[in-house]
Design a protein around this nucleic acid. Structure first.
Length: 263
DNA sequence: ATGCCTTTCCCAGAAAGA
């Protein structure tokens, strides 16, 4: 079976590209981030003809996550235990949901951006990642194949950005963010690094401006973190760069993982 | 890249993204 994650930067704006990509790539399970539609507003009717059921967690203008599956949807869990909000606990955002799809369980995540290391949003990001580590510990230890996948807004290593010098003083590369990511992985989750397609690293995000995509100025911030049962079944992992080309693309490309599991 | 694009709110420009 084939699973994937893609930050679409508005499912409304990206719907033609999403439908085209579903038809071309044929994933069985897709985690989407930044859907930017409210609860119940996901265009499920546009993906139903392709065989996909939708579990969505949305709030409106910002954020929003969804899981599309054509191999079943069960045990939908929106949000996570102990999830912090921004600016405070009264305003928890739509950033994660977990779903069981046939033989696998996936947790779709859209980690807070952090804005800048001195910003309250950065502390929120670290708190959110800490809560995520606690929330997935039990699922990661299970015998059921499980993955936390989505837009982590953290580049795991310096090699995961096009120019480390350009990120001095910026978020996504700080030691605290990377430590939070490592703590999450300590639950037994392995970073399924996609194979190289072009350039030195399998980047997943490129800024819209200044031709960043064509200049190779990217980052690897969209990750699939898999438990042992899922990692053992991986036959391929790659970035679908075609989805970043052409008319009106998202600024992220999908990460696709193939598994030797019955779908 | 100190947001040079894009999307949302909704019709003007601010907020947010990474």
């Amino acid at each position: 079976m084939r699973i994937a994650t893609w930050n679409v930067n508005s499912v409304t704006a990206r719907l033609p590209r999403l439908v085209e990509w579903l038809g071309r790539a044929g994933p069985d399970v897709v985690c989407l981030q930044e859907t930017k539609v409210g609860a119940g507003e996901f265009p499920a009717g546009a993906v139903a003809p392709l065989g996909y059921a939708v579990a969505e967690h949305g709030e409106g203008r910002w954020n929003g996550v969804a899981v599309l599956s054509r191999v079943g949807l069960a045990d939908v869990s929106r949000g996570m235990p102990g999830e912090p909000g921004f600016p405070d606990a009264r305003t928890v955002e739509a950033r994660t949901l977990a779903v069981t799809c046939g033989p696998v369980r996936v947790r779709c995540v859209y980690v807070p951006n952090g804005r800048s290391p001195g910003d309250p949003h950065y502390q929120y990001k670290l708190r959110w990642l800490a809560a995520l580590a606690d929330a997935v510990a039990a699922e990661a230890a299970a015998s059921l194949p499980f993955a936390v996948m989505g837009d982590f807004n953290v580049a795991p290593a310096d090699a995961d950005v096009w120019d480390p010098a350009a990120f001095e003083g910026a978020t996504h590369v700080t030691p605290a963010e990377r430590a939070a990511l490592r703590r999450l992985q300590k639950a037994g989750l392995r970073d399924l690094v996609p194979r190289i397609a072009k350039g030195p690293r399998p980047f997943t995000y490129w800024d819209y401006r200044a031709g960043a995509f064509h200049k190779g100025m990217g980052m690897r911030i969209d990750l699939v973190l898999a438990n042992a049962a899922l990692a053992a079944a991986v036959t391929d992992a790659f970035v679908d760069r075609e989805a970043r080309k052409g008319t009106a693309p998202s600024d992220h490309a999908p990460v696709v993982v193939d598994l030797a599991l019955p779908s």
